[in-house]
Design a protein around this nucleic acid. Structure first.
Lengths: 365, 365
DNA sequence: GGCAGATATGTAAGCGCTTACATAGGAGGA
DNA sequence: TCCTCCTATGTAAGCGCTTACATATCTGCC
């Protein structure tokens, strides 16, 4: 039935061949594939004459090793992934930059995925990355579906959540306490004598980080025995426009209610507010104080320069990469939390509240 | 010598096994690997009963197909790459965003590489990407070593240069003419009556795009018969600070030489200049006119709002992705050039020059 | 009833690597 | 001289897929 001759009955031609393969290099150099492989991965183990012969052959054939072949053979891809909400935000872009710089040094590649602040998108990205065999992952924040973390666990893929910190967090993380830094920022206003606060913030739902910021503000206020009127919390997006429009709204309030201190969720909003204030003929910090967050390049050029806080996102990216690489090397899946301290950057946009707003005005004057 | 028994003499255990493999799914479902493969890649060809059985088995085993295995078998990776100078720049980040959005739809992944404006780094990134089998590439600009393009050619990898346009360019590209838009911007100043120009620009060398911008300005000026004093061209980086410092320098010039129109290489520089102008007590556009480029969000909030020009970088990214995907499908390596038109955005920062600067002042007054 | 032509599935080669194990050729010691 | 131990290289299996080709089963038509 079967013909016994050993010559292959079929010959496929999977065309689309691009470059040379390792075996072609081996043939040209007159050695075995094993030797070629060794010449590149562990040069010491190959005699110099043979090695140079191999390198020459590879050069000649323009050989580029195939990562896929190697991945299959070694079960390692040397690829890490990063999931960020959007590249549109300098904050996240800088984290990616930091990661990238470390990875390049270590011969790793980076897969970038944007979640667009959607859990489903993030899940899809991670799924695809897992198929491609990413060895580790950095994800911004913690707002992801459980399913995502399960997948990561099933695949024993080390990961680290960036831009957040919580010693009680059931995930490795590297970042800072959003509540604390916003509490600190709030206290700066309190210390300057403010009692009436307005908040300009981003959407809270689905974003634990922003929620924490809000909590921080509330905490500091309540510690100072100050109530925050919910109507003075203006939620929108992170844009200049939301900042500007919100300022409008706050400044339209009757003088007695009008906040004298405005805490913004980020610098962009604060800068928007400042610019609207100028249009309205309001002076900062004479008429009101304001703070932002991020310490973007712009914030020291505004008039007045903006008080804000700064977190080194590049470092977060760098550390995240180090951490993942480290775990990978040690095959360590433990949960560690590391803190990158933010820093208050106080400038002229915060000062004492205007006299008219002082409840003790009549008495003390 | 050789023992003829067929039982394998060696058994390797390549541990580190993470997930299930297709063959395990096949076994569990009681079918061959071919059928499993077909069930996922071409479901029509598998009977429904078998198919559901396979899906169930895969689900149960938590199977994730291995991109490496598939890549090896099909010689396709479904990965595209993007090389940008730095993520630190909103411009490039938006291009990546556009690409990303398209790729996600088409089931492609994105490798991101930053060249840090260095040809060598770009070359290294591309080399690594080629190893990983990227099927196509977007590169910002044209300032890359020849070697890089050769490699791309050897590997028959389609690519497109973004953010530039030149019908004579020996590469596929998608972008705009930097010289033309800057000439147009210059003409706006000229039309307003300016004769004395100052330029605040980024480093030119190694950046053909910036060089072209400069050429555009010079062209428009020389067409108007106006000479540009080389001392009035201030080269630095793209920062707020360079803008501010340069403004200082220009405004310190004796009144007769002092430019009345300042053309900046980007909005950031222009905004820096505006902010310094305010500090110096100068009014814009009464004391001088100024323009930027990019139309960043800030530029409509400055005082006065900044005249600038805008290019839709998101669209560039989207189109670049489409173009690469298209070539890939058609196996088309031809060179096409596509244009994305920039748009002038004229606001209040440009007006007539101050009277004192008018050479005909005495006569006409 | 037999055969062509679908249709559904199986078989196994091969994609480009790495690496456990085998082997050959010295070097050196007893 | 023989044996041991290196060192340099070869052999070939196997990583997880896809797919050309083979096979089996079923339709339906003459």
């Amino acid at each position: 039935m079967q013909n016994d001759d050993t010559q292959p009955k079929r010959r496929r031609n999977r065309s689309r061949k691009t470059g040379a393969s390792l075996s072609q290099v081996a043939e040209k150099a007159g050695v075995s594939t094993a030797t070629v492989s060794r010449a590149f991965n562990d040069p010491e183990r190959v005699s110099e004459t043979v090695r140079t012969r191999i390198f020459a052959a590879a050069e000649l054939l323009n050989w580029v090793p195939s990562a896929a072949g190697r991945a299959l053979a070694t079960n390692r891809t040397r690829i890490l992934g990063a999931i960020i909400p959007t590249l549109d935000n300098e904050i996240f872009a800088r984290q990616v930059l930091g990661m990238q710089d470390v990875l390049t040094q270590h011969g790793y590649r980076l897969f970038l995925g944007c979640s667009r602040y959607s859990g489903a998108d993030a899940l899809a990205e991670v799924g695809a990355m897992l198929q491609h065999g990413v060895e580790g992952l950095m994800l911004v924040g913690e707002d992801y579906p459980d399913m995502l973390f399960q997948q990561l666990k099933v695949h024993k893929t080390p990961y680290v959540l960036s831009y957040i910190y919580g010693s009680d967090l059931p995930h490795p993380c590297i970042g800072f306490r959003h509540d604390e830094i916003f509490a600190a920022l709030t206290r700066v206003h309190l210390d300057a004598g403010h009692q009436k606060f307005g908040l300009i913030f981003q959407q809270v739902e689905g974003n634990t980080r922003v929620a924490a910021r809000l909590e921080g503000v509330k905490l500091a206020l309540s510690e100072a025995g100050i109530a925050l009127d919910p109507d003075h919390i203006l939620i929108g997006d992170g844009s200049l426009k939301h900042g500007a429009d919100s300022l409008d709204a706050l400044m339209r309030l009757p003088l007695a209610e009008r906040p004298t201190a405005i805490i913004c969720g980020n610098d962009t909003q604060a800068i928007g507010a400042l610019s609207r204030a100028r249009e309205l003929g309001l002076k900062v910090p004479e008429d009101f104080s304001i703070s932002g967050f991020d310490n973007t390049a712009m914030s020291e050029m505004t008039s007045p320069p903006l008080s804000t806080a700064e977190i080194d996102n590049y470092v977060i990216g760098v550390e995240a990469a180090h951490q993942i690489l480290h775990r990978l090397k040690l095959n360590d899946l433990s949960i560690s939390h590391s803190l990158v301290e933010p820093r208050l950057v106080l400038r002229q946009s915060i000062a004492a509240p205007p006299r008219y707003s002082d409840p003790e005005h009549m008495i003390s004057a």
